[in-house]
């Protein structure tokens, strides 16, 4: 096996990780915001339903959730899921949305009530108050915890292999059968570089948002 074809096979695997990462982020962030509204709802049943949901998702392993999404529809309802990638994305998006929702909730609840009251007496609607005044302050407060989750997400994408989605570590492991260990080791480098870039990016965002205090 020549070096180049191994590297290109690893790149193919890592493309899958990147795809899972990007799609999860893209869908889990807005979904997380919606779930956070649910967990702050004044209407009790919605609030408790959401809280129970978040508890279950955060309280069980992502690996188990992957298996459930993959096999439950087919075995229980005889509507098998059509693609493994779909199963991966459903499980990841729900799982990460639950974590994000708690970060959003914490951020939103940390904004002083006075900000909303100031908006109200200035004749703003509730949505104007949220989108024009509160949201930006929330973002500033949650950049650090979100960056933690995002970096965890990069590494979690390799869990997709448990339902046989050929992500980078699964690709690398194949080469151990041929007596090669370095492809497996080298996968770490992909993750390190990717997370290094993310760390720099989040550092940049934090710095950009540092123009004001409070």
């Amino acid at each position: 096996m020549e070096f180049q074809s191994i590297v290109s096979s690893l790149f193919e695997g890592f493309y899958v990780n990147c795809f899972i990462f990007a799609m999860t982020l893209l869908m889990a962030l807005p979904l997380g915001l919606i779930i956070s509204f649910g967990s702050m709802a004044k209407f009790r049943p919605i609030k408790w339903l959401t809280k129970t949901f978040v508890w279950i998702i955060r309280g069980t392993p992502l690996m188990l959730q992957l298996f459930v999404v993959m096999y439950a529809p087919g075995i229980l309802f005889e509507i098998p899921i059509n693609s493994r990638m779909t199963a991966v994305l459903i499980a990841f998006v729900i799982n990460y949305a639950a974590y994000f929702s708690e970060i959003f909730r914490g951020g939103i609840e940390s904004i002083p009530r006075g900000q909303y009251e100031a908006c109200q007496v200035l004749g703003m609607t509730k949505s104007q108050a949220f989108f024009k005044v509160v949201l930006f302050q929330v973002i500033k407060r949650i950049v650090a915890p979100i960056s933690n989750e995002v970096i965890t997400l990069v590494k979690d994408t390799s869990l997709a292999r448990v339902i046989s989605v050929a992500e980078i570590i699964m690709c690398a492991e194949r080469f151990t059968k041929k007596g090669l260990i370095w492809p497996l080791f080298s996968t770490g480098i992909y993750f390190l570089i990717f997370n290094g870039i993310l760390t720099l990016l989040f550092g940049y965002i934090e710095k950009k948002l540092d123009y004001y205090k409070g």
Binding site: G114, E117, A118, F136, Q137, K140, K213, G214
Partner: peptide, 12 residues
């Protein structure tokens, strides 16, 4: 119009 004791300006 209402002026608050603690200002409640929009910090951003």
């Amino acid at each position: 119009g209402l002026v608050f004791q603690d200002f409640h300006l929009f910090p951003q």
